[in-house]
Structure formats: structure tokens, C-alpha cells
Design a binder for these strands. Structure first.
Length: 110
DNA sequence: AGTCTGACTGGAG
DNA sequence: TCTCCAGCCAGAC
């Protein structure tokens, strides 16, 4: 597994996020054994848009539950619509009950 | 090799 | 509960 690049590991883990659930960059980084590398995860997600197969980057938010990446989804509210479509509630660019829908890859990952 | 930047995080006020 | 500050890692110049 260490053979894979950190970015690739981020993509794979991000694809495991169930629909209607969300997680944070730090949780992914920690799950990959690189706690503190949350920024790298975010940076990697930036390339997720051109990654193949596609990565549900809209399910990855910061620890505040804010849609920090919504600008990267076309400068529109596309990211918010996707999340709402999955059953999530968004208020003021922030996920409502963020902690409730939070998906911990370290605990819920099979 | 050095410096800067970023879709971040945790702790303190 | 919210805001602000410093620390963090990898990649681009």
C-alpha cells in the first residue's frame, strides 16, 4: 500500500464515502497514517475533479463543516445541491448536524 | 536547495 | 459557540 502515492490513497478512500455521509480532510489524512497532512488531502482533492474514476469530493469538508470547496465546483452552488440531494442539510454554507452525518474512515470503514 | 501557497486542524481567547 | 493564531505536509517556482 505504501507503494501508492498519497494522492491515490486519498482518492480511493474518498470513493468509499457512502452517499448521504461526509467526512473531513483531517480524518482522511489520519486514516492514511498522515495526521496533520490534512492540507495535502485538500490539495489532492483539488485534482480529484480530473481524477478517473471520479471522486465524490463534495462529500469531503473541513472540520467546521463548511463548504470550503464549493468555489471549485464551478463557482456555483453545485456542491451544495449535490449534498442536499444526498439528504444533507446546508445552512449558510455549513452542514447542519455535521457531527451526526460525519463518516469516520477509521471506525466505519470495513 | 530555499521559499511560498493551499478545498486544513486544534487550541486558546 | 465563534473567531483568531500558529503548525502542519507536499508540490510548484
Amino acid at each position: 500500500m505504501e507503494e501508492n502515492n498519497f494522492y491515490q490513497q486519498v482518492y480511493e478512500l474518498a470513493r468509499m464515502i457512502p452517499q448521504g455521509r461526509i467526512t473531513s480532510y483531517g480524518a482522511i489524512a489520519k486514516a492514511l497514517g498522515r495526521p496533520g497532512a490534512a492540507r495535502i488531502v485538500g490539495y489532492a482533492m483539488g485534482q480529484a475533479g480530473k481524477a478517473d474514476p471520479p471522486v465524490p469530493a463534495h462529500r469531503v469538508l473541513n472540520h467546521k463543516g463548511e463548504l470550503t470547496a464549493k468555489e471549485a465546483f464551478g463557482k456555483g452552488n453545485r456542491m451544495q445541491e449535490l449534498l442536499e440531494k444526498e439528504g444533507l442539510t446546508i445552512k449558510n454554507n455549513k452542514i447542519v448536524n455535521f457531527n451526526r452525518f460525519f463518516w469516520n474512515p477509521l471506525e466505519e470503514l470495513d
